Computed example of a mutant assay.
Amino acid sequence: MFADLRGRVLEIGAGEGENLPAFGDDVSWTAIEPDAGARRELEREARRYGFVEEVIDARCEELPFSDKTFDAVVATLVFCSVTELARSFEEVMRVLKPGGTVACVEHVHAEKGSVRRLIQSMATPLSVRWDGNCHWNRDPVSAAHAAGFREQRLDRFELDTGVPFLPAPCILYVGVKPLDR
């Protein structure tokens, strides 16, 4: 998903740098990571992979960058844990250049009316409390569309949690900022 990205790339909620090996040489990488411990490890990993750009203490809801700064924004299991989902996608839209790409892998809600969705809804208050504010029952695709992104790719898949009754539906989403924005 990240191999085709070029130019200035912002990774939001970059964790400890798990995605760094996926970025090509054509990327000028910047990251935000609000967790201090993860940020220290991320800085070490970034240097190890030759990325000397910034690792910033910031939240997606308040990105500390000028409008139209980045060619791409990437996230892996981040939009499930932001405080304000809609605001986060609006901020991503703001910092992307026209024609820029948002690419993310996210937890999503199960099918409407399914037992799996009911289980997710019941488990989400626990996951929010004990799993870094993770909301298993969110709809990031609708939030991306509401912010104005044009869907370029949407793949659905399941993560194996090791617990048969605990659903982990996910998406790989790629959206593009319209040229007129």
Score class of each variant (00 low, 15 high):
M1H: 01
F2T: 04
R6A: 04
G7K: 04
G7P: 03
R8A: 06
V9H: 04
V9C: 03
L10T: 00
G13S: 01
A14I: 01
G17I: 01
G17Y: 07
E18N: 06
E18G: 04
N19K: 05
P21F: 00
A22Q: 05
F23Y: 13
G24S: 11
W29V: 03
W29C: 01
I32Q: 00
D35C: 07
G37T: 01
G37D: 04
G37P: 00
A38H: 05
R39V: 07
E41K: 15
R44T: 06
E45T: 02
G50Q: 07
G50V: 07
E54N: 12
E54R: 09
V55Q: 08
V55W: 00
I56R: 06
D57C: 13
D57H: 09
C60V: 15
E61F: 14
F65V: 05
K68W: 00
T69H: 05
F70P: 02
A72Q: 03
A72L: 05
A75L: 07
T76F: 06
V78D: 00
F79C: 07
F79S: 09
C80R: 03
T83W: 04
T83I: 05
E84W: 10
L85Q: 05
L85R: 06
S88C: 08
S88N: 08
E91R: 09
R94N: 06
V95K: 02
L96V: 10
K97D: 05
G100V: 11
T101N: 06
C104S: 13
C104Y: 08
V105L: 13
E106G: 07
V108G: 06
A110W: 07
E111P: 09
K112E: 15
G113M: 10
V115L: 15
R116S: 10
R116E: 11
R117E: 13
R117N: 10
R117D: 08
R117L: 12
L118S: 10
Q120E: 11
A123S: 14
L126K: 13
S127R: 10
W130N: 09
D131V: 13
D131W: 13
N133P: 06
N133G: 14
C134R: 09
C134P: 08
H135W: 09
D139F: 02
P140W: 02
P140C: 13
P140A: 10
V141T: 14
A144R: 09
H145C: 11
A146H: 14
A147D: 04
G148T: 04
F149K: 09
F149Q: 02
R150M: 11
Q152G: 12
Q152P: 00
Q152I: 12
R153Y: 02
R153H: 13
D155E: 14
R156S: 12
F157E: 13
F157C: 11
E158N: 13
E158P: 01
E158K: 11
L159R: 14
D160W: 08
D160K: 15
P164C: 12
P164I: 04
L166M: 15
L166F: 15
L166E: 04
P169E: 11
P169M: 14
P169T: 10
I171F: 08
V176G: 00
V176I: 15
K177V: 08
K177F: 07
P178A: 10
P178G: 08
L179S: 07
L179P: 00
D180V: 02
D180G: 11
